[in-house]
């Protein structure tokens, strides 16, 4: 069963000049932890705002838990939890007051659904009298998650919840999402971090207002098999230029300490490449055959698109 169905959603800003979403369609299954992966400005937030009934799409249809985002906004607002990318709780209320406020707004109490937020709340409980504006980034996100969960939503929308959060808090945050998923809540999370893709059940890659692909991470990786070499030498800058000039090269990008080179002909041998680089006077050359990860795949899909 699908919890969220999106069909041909298009949304433009500035009277059609700026395209935010271009004919986007995909489905999210019930109880799934779904990742929306894309760079800044790809259209993730716009999609979230449409699904949470804050924005009306130009065309297309979308339903959340069977309710239409245009017609049934009242029902949707009862059952979704939304955590905007920008911290938007009351900064001049304390942790406790924010929680109580949002519980009241949804016609429930903190006690009623305390089970759901217990794991998260215990971490910020020592600071419950502190004003939300005075919390650290990670704590703010935890509080925002608590507030989004307080009415026991069926579908949870998290817009870049880990942006600007330290690595430890990021890890904790994803563990919490895992536990929420076990309770049967459908979670849609957007992130610009590729490494978070492997923590999702399925992911959608979004770029320039278009969906590039929707699948499990493994599915996307196997579908997009590439012949990749990780290459390094003493002169990395010159190496990048030379690799891009290599006749068999499709693309080459810097990835940390190595350059990832994609070649046209499937081969496991690096003889030709080695000879080419030696000819170009590169010293200390190391070449490894590697399996593409999500970032390589994303770049490939971006180029294909």
């Amino acid at each position: 069963m699908s919890s969220v169905i999106i069909e041909n959603i298009t949304k433009t800003y500035e009277k059609g000049i700026v395209k935010a979403l271009d004919n986007v369609s995909f489905e999210v299954k019930s109880g799934e932890l779904f990742g929306l992966i894309g760079a800044d400005g790809a259209g993730k937030t716009t999609l979230f705002r449409i699904l949470t009934t804050l924005l009306i799409p130009d065309s297309g249809k979308a339903t959340v838990a069977g309710f239409d985002v245009i017609k049934d906004l009242k029902q949707i607002r009862q059952i979704v939890g939304y955590m905007p990318g920008k911290f938007s709780l009351y900064q001049d209320l304390s942790i406790e007051e924010n929680l109580n406020f949002f519980a009241t707004v949804f016609g429930t109490t903190v006690e009623e659904n305390f089970e759901l937020i217990r794991d998260i709340y215990v971490q910020i409980e020592p600071f419950k009298k502190r004003l939300a504006g005075k919390l650290s980034g990670g704590m703010k996100q935890k509080l925002a998650l608590c507030c989004a969960l307080i009415h026991e939503p069926k579908v949870l929308f998290l817009d870049e919840p880990t942006t600007g959060v330290d690595p430890v808090s990021r890890k904790e945050f994803w563990e919490m999402l895992g536990r929420l998923k076990e309770r049967g809540i459908t979670i849609i999370v957007s992130t610009p971090y590729m490494d978070e893709a492997k923590l999702c059940d399925r992911i959608a890659l979004i770029q320039n207002s278009k969906i590039l692909d929707v699948d499990t991470l493994e599915g996307i990786l196997t579908k997009n098999k590439q012949n990749l070499f990780a290459v390094s030498s003493d002169n990395m800058y010159q190496l990048l230029k030379d690799l891009r000039a290599y006749t068999d090269a499709v693309s080459c990008f810097a990835f940390g300490q190595h350059h990832h080179l994609q070649v046209k002909t499937p081969t496991s041998s690096d003889e030709k490449l080695r000879a080419y680089l030696a000819h170009r006077n590169h010293t200390n050359v190391s070449i490894e055959t590697i399996n593409p990860d999500i970032e390589d795949t994303f770049i490939k899909l971006m180029q294909d698109a």
Binding site: L54, K74, Y82, P84, K86, S88, L89, F102, G107, C147
Partner: peptide, 13 residues
Amino acid sequence: EIGTIEQINVTPI
């Protein structure tokens, strides 16, 4: 400006 209205708008209020 702060964005709190966004959070209020998604509530059934």
